[in-house]
Design a protein around this nucleic acid. Structure first.
Length: 424
RNA sequence: GGAGAAAUGGCAGAGUGGUCGAAUGCGGCGGUCUUGAAAACCGUUGUCCGUUCCGCGGACCGGGGGUUCGAAUCCCUCUUUCUCCGCCA
């Protein structure tokens, strides 16, 4: 959510920049500013009435104390009229604020100046790539066939227990999941992130704080009886740790990492995109989150990028880093890089990480602020997060790329965690 | 799930209808003293909104609503915490 002050001072800039996100902000910013003006004048008028009421109420108190009951009663009558006015003004103020909020939450974050224009994922810009695509044998199998061959992931069983998109990992498959989780967590901790294990369900306030609510509730599983949402990513509970906090500048950077399962409804997905591990309703992910001083958030974004890159490299997966274009970047993000790994049997690039700087957009919703050393005024912090990493597609690529006649070879770095070096 | 009690500033904790944005202690910050530090002493110390912005006005004592001329204080409701009972990994 952009702040009102920012919209007041930078309307033309906002309209111009949001064109990159293919969003026409002309009308909505106009409405916002008009409503805000109305809000201010209504509040000023109401405050005046309240001041009057407060003053008179004090007088009444004194009059009663001095036994001047008649005079007091007169003043009371006067107050009744003022109260009537306040009631009306407060009602219209509530209405105005409601409308204002409705509009404010519809305005996307301003994209960073480096975000390239574009309509969709085809316009994302590759900024780096690494690793080499393996030469697979003629009879190489896609991961879903490998999973079946070695009996390490059972999709049908998941269908039976829950539904599609909820696989059952078995034996070495299950152990490999655990190994990846621990490996990623250990690397994050090594890089200075503080591990947390958050709740997997969040309330509405948390959903609002990170930008999932309102509007994107269709992407989350909702537990209606208790009005809770299953988390689509650890970003939600972890970032919300700092909701309603006022930090001091010396607290930065705050680095947190969390492993959680993630739950996504993925409504509207279909076909080969969802085959096997490519798109699941429940998957495991290690997330990294940072809260940083506005002046340093882009340095931090780069640092997070480096961390994710080091993970992908250490697993010997061919990868590329994309800078998302205006048409593909999310509503809340100012700048996002996607990491993709090449899954050799499918001959497909799979997104395994998304690293974003939200600048103050989430912080404004979260009321996550800080004070500069020695200053009284609060400012909004910047929030960032990234996957480090999402497991299923990493697993897909590992299975496909490392298959051989003998079996699937486990990357060196994971062997201390798996306790085996081949799946056969 | 049932019965009862409670929720106040960074923390602890007073305050039961006006003089309370809130005593006091701790913590934080600034100063005096000191070679430096500690101790002691003095001062200071919440957030948000509006504004004609050295000033002034308004809101906030878990959330929402109500009673009243006036609410931290009374009432209703929700949430959370604690105690007891029940259930349970």
């Amino acid at each position: 959510m952009l702040t009102l002050r920012f919209i007041q001072e930078n309307r033309d800039f906002i309209i111009e920049r949001l064109k990159i996100k293919n969003f026409d902000a002309t009308k909505i910013t106009g409405q916002i500013l008009a409503l805000d003006k109305e809000r201010r004048s209504t509040q000023a008028a109401m405050d005046d009435h309240k001041a009057e009421l407060n003053k008179l109420s004090k007088e009444i108190g004194k009059l009663f104390k001095n036994g001047k009951v008649e005079e007091a009663t007169k003043v009371k009558e006067k107050n009744a009229q003022i109260k009537e006015n306040i009631k009306e003004q407060s009602e219209s103020l509530n209405k105005i604020e409601e409308q204002l909020n409705l509009l404010l939450v519809q305005l996307p974050n301003i994209p960073h100046e480096s975000v390239p224009p574009g309509k969709g994922e085809q316009d994302n810009v590759e900024i780096k790539s690494g690793g080499t695509k393996p030469e697979l044998a003629q009879d190489a199998l896609p991961h879903w066939d490998l999973a079946k061959k070695y009996d390490i992931i059972d999709f049908e069983l998941g269908n039976k227990i829950t539904g599609s998109g909820f696989p059952v990992y078995k034996g070495k498959g299950a152990k490999l999941q655990r190994a990846l989780i621990n490996y990623f967590l250990d690397k994050a901790i090594e890089a200075g992130y503080h591990e947390v294990l958050p709740p997997l369900m969040v309330n509405e306030d948390s959903g609002f704080g990170t930008g999932q609510l309102p509007d994107k509730e269709g992407q989350m599983y909702h537990v209606a009886l208790d009005n809770l949402y299953l988390i689509p990513t650890a970003e939600v509970p972890v970032t919300n740790i700092y909701r309603n906090k006022i930090l001091s500048a010396k607290d930065f950077p705050i680095r947190m990492t969390a492993y959680t399962p993630c739950f996504r409804r993925e409504a509207g997905s279909y076909g080969k995109d969802v085959r096997g591990l490519n798109r699941l309703h429940q998957f495991d992910k290690v997330e990294i989150v940072q809260i940083q001083h506005p002046d340093k958030s882009y340095e931090t974004l780069q640092e997070m990028l480096n961390h994710v890159e080091s993970l992908v490299k250490s697993l010997n997966l061919p990868y590329r880093i994309l800078k998302l274009c205006g048409g593909d970047i999310s509503f809340t993000s100012a700048l996002t890089y996607d990491f993709e790994v090449y899954s050799a049997a499918q001959q497909k690039w799979l997104e395994v990480s998304s690293v974003s700087n939200f600048e103050a957009f989430q912080a404004n919703r979260l009321k996550l602020r800080f004070k500069e050393e020695g200053e009284k005024k609060t400012k909004l912090a910047h929030t960032l997060n990234g996957s480090a990493l999402a497991l299923p597609r990493i697993l897909a690529a590992l299975l496909e790329n490392n298959q051989s006649a003998e079996g699937v070879v486990i990357p060196e770095v994971l062997r201390p965690y798996t306790g085996f070096d081949i799946i056969d």
